[in-house]
Simulated assay, not measured.
Amino acid sequence: MHVKVPPIPERVRGLAGAAAPTHVSLDGSAGPARGCVDGTGRPLLLVKPGEALHGLRAGDDAVVTVDLSATRTLAGVEYPRGLLKVQGWAQAVPPESLREAAVRVSARCPDEALFAAVEGDPAGPRLFRVDVGYVIYLTGRESGMLDAEEYLAAGPGPVHDAAERMLRHVNEAHREQLARAVRTLTGEPVREPWLWELDRYGATVRSDSVDTTFIRIPWPAPVEGAHELERALSLLLCPR
C-alpha cells in the first residue's frame, strides 16, 4: 500500500526540529524556557541565574519536562502546528561542546547571554542538554507518546530542511498557482490556500474559506531528496 503521510515518529521529530521550548518543569515548578532542539532531537536550553536549573552542578542530572511548541506563520498570523512534552534528564553541556551548542541555540534563539554561557562560568548563564526519556505529542487530531528509542531513531525526514524553504517560497510567491492546482485536483473551489506541510510523501494545503480544512495531496511515489521534492512540487503547481 502506498504510504501517504510520514510515520508518526518522523513527523514528531520534524515538529521538534521546528519547535521552540516554551516552559521547563523541575520538581513541580515550571518556568520559561529558551533554546532549541539539537540535531539528535534533544532539547538545548539556555538557563540564566535565578532559574530553577541554574544551580544544578556539573555531572549531576535532574528529571525535567520541556514543553515545545511548533507554529506556522501565515500572513503575519501564527498558527499552532503541534505541541510536544519531552521528559528526560537535564545535564550541563560539557565544556568541549559549549561553543557548538551556543551556535545552534543562537540560530533559533539569539541572546547575548550565550556569549557568557560559552565562558563556562557557573555563576553566569549556562547551557543544558536534555537526554530524552519519552515524548508526548499533540498534533492536529493525533496524540500519543513515543519512547526515547522510537523518537531518537526516527530523524526528521530526508527532505525536512529543503521542504521548509520550498514551503515558504510557495506561500510567498505562488499561492494563485496553488489554488488552481487544488481546484483542478479536487474539482472544488478553494479560498485562502496555504501550503501547510511539505514532506517526502506529499503536501498538505490549508484552506481558510469558511471553516479551516486541510487537503492532503500525496506524491505518486515518495521522494528521497531535495531535487525530487522540487520536481514533485513543480509538477503539482505547473502540471503539463
Rank of each mutant, 00 (worst) to 15 (best):
L15A: 14
V24P: 05
L195N: 13
G124A: 13
I136M: 13
T71Y: 04
R180E: 15
H54P: 00
S29I: 12
G155I: 06
V130T: 01
G140K: 01
A173D: 11
S207C: 13
L26H: 11
A16I: 07
P43W: 00
L233D: 01
P122M: 05
L46D: 02
V5H: 12
R34F: 02
V105T: 11
P95V: 04
P49E: 00
R231T: 07
A116S: 09
A101S: 15
P94W: 07
V3I: 14
P158Y: 08
E96P: 03
V118H: 01
L114W: 02
E224F: 07
A52I: 07
D111M: 00
E188R: 15
F128D: 03
T73Q: 08
G59K: 11
Y137G: 01
P189A: 06
E100A: 15
L237C: 05
V77S: 12
R99T: 12
S97H: 15
R206D: 03
E78H: 12
G28E: 02
R168M: 08
R11I: 07
C109D: 09
T204D: 01
P95C: 05
I217T: 09
T204E: 08
L138I: 05
A107M: 07
G88V: 11
P189W: 02
G88D: 12
L56E: 08
L185G: 04
P110S: 03
H227M: 13
M166D: 15
G28F: 09
R165V: 09
P158C: 10
L178P: 04
T184D: 15
A173K: 01
L114V: 01
L146V: 04
L114D: 00
G50W: 05
P7F: 12
E112K: 01
E230Q: 10
G14A: 12
G140Q: 03
V24Q: 08
L138H: 09
V93Q: 07
G133H: 06
P43N: 01
K48H: 08
V159K: 05
